[in-house]
Design a protein around this nucleic acid. Structure first.
Lengths: 160, 160
DNA sequence: CGCTTTCCGTTATGTTATAACATACACCGC
DNA sequence: GCGGTGTATGTTATAACATAACGGAAAGCG
C-alpha cells in the first residue's frame, strides 16, 4: 500500500480522502457540473490509492465494481476530473494522480521517485518560465513541470 | 515545411543542421561512443525536420532509406540520441526534437504551441524547482518543463 | 410529446513502446 | 585463426496507452 506520496511525509489518510472528495463535490455543485457515479468512484479510487495510476489500472477497479469495463469509460471520467482540477495527469508516467490540494485551480509540479514510483505534488510558481515565455512572445496556457530523482526514502544512507 | 521553431524566430536552417551534426559527431568521438548510420540519420531527420516528430514518423523516414523498418530500430536510435543530449523527448507530445544547442548537457524547457504544434526550446534555470525539492529532501536528477500555449504567430491580432 | 443536452456503453481501431531472442561485426588476447 | 567479449542491429510479438465513432438512456424543458 502506498503510504508516503504527499510531500513524502506521513499523514492521516482516510481523512484526507473524505476532505478531498467533499471539496470536489462542493466544486461541482458550484460550477453546475455533475459528479456522476463513475466520475466519483474514479476520483475515490485515485484518492484511496494515493499514488499515480494508469488509466487502465483505474479501469480495472471500476470494472470490478460494475462501473464500466471499456477504456473510454475510464478516459472520459479521468478527462472530466482533470478538467475540473481534481486530478492531475503525469505526462512522464502516462498516469493520473488525485490532486493534493483541490479547490484552487493551479498548474501542478511533481517530484517523481524513479525507484519507488512515488509522486509528490509540489508547491511551485512558474515565474521563471513566465519570464522566459514573455521574452519570446509566447503566451502560456498551461505548464507541465515534473522532476525525476530519488525521494528521501530511496536515497542511499547518509545522502539525504 | 516547419520554419520557425527555434525561439519562434527565423534562422539559417541548412547551416544549423550542419553545425549541430558536427557538434554531435565531435561529442561522440570525445566520449568514445559510436555515431552509427542509423543514429546519424535519425539525428539528421530530426534536424532537417526541425520540429517535434513521433518515433514512428522518424521510423517511416528511416525505412524509406532502407535503414530499418521495425519500431525498436527507431526507439534505440532515439534513446541513444537522447542519452547523449543531441535530442530531447517532449513528454507532452510523445515526440522527439533535435536539441537547439547541443554540446552542453542540460535540462531543457519547451514552449509548445497548441495551434501549430511548433516547439521552441527555452533557456531556463530550474532554480525554483530545486529549492522546493531540497525542502522536502527530494534529490532531482532530471526535470521536464513544458509550457503549452500560443506562439506569437498563432495569437489573435493585437494580443502579442 | 418532441427536442436538446449530457452522459454512458460498446465496437473497433489507432498510436506509442518494449520484451525477448537471434544475428552481425569489431576488437582483443592467445 | 580461434574463441571470448562487447556493442549494435534485425525481427517477432505483444504490451500499454488512447480515441474515433455510433447508439442508447436519462434528465430538463418548451
Amino acid at each position: 500500500m502506498p503510504s508516503h506520496a504527499l510531500g513524502f511525509a506521513a499523514h492521516d489518510h482516510s481523512s484526507c480522502v473524505k476532505s478531498a472528495l467533499g471539496t470536489a463535490l462542493d466544486a461541482c455543485a458550484e460550477r453546475g457540473v455533475q459528479m456522476t457515479p463513475v466520475r466519483k468512484r474514479a476520483l475515490e479510487i485515485l484518492l484511496e490509492n494515493h499514488s499515480a495510476m494508469g488509466a487502465y489500472d483505474v479501469l480495472v477497479r471500476l470494472d470490478a465494481e460494475g462501473l464500466g469495463s471499456k477504456p473510454p469509460v475510464a478516459y472520459r471520467a479521468l478527462s472530466f476530473l482533470v478538467e475540473q482540477g481534481f486530478v492531475h495527469r503525469i505526462e512522464r508516467l502516462n498516469a493520473f494522480i488525485a490532486c493534493a490540494h483541490p479547490g484552487d485551480k493551479h498548474d501542478p509540479a511533481f517530484m517523481i521517485c524513479r525507484t519507488c514510483g512515488t509522486v509528490a505534488e509540489a508547491q511551485i510558481s512558474s515565474a521563471t518560465l513566465g519570464a522566459s515565455a514573455a521574452q519570446s512572445g509566447f503566451q502560456i496556457e498551461q505548464t507541465v513541470i515534473e522532476a525525476q530523482g530519488l525521494c528521501p526514502a530511496c536515497q542511499p544512507e547518509g545522502t539525504a
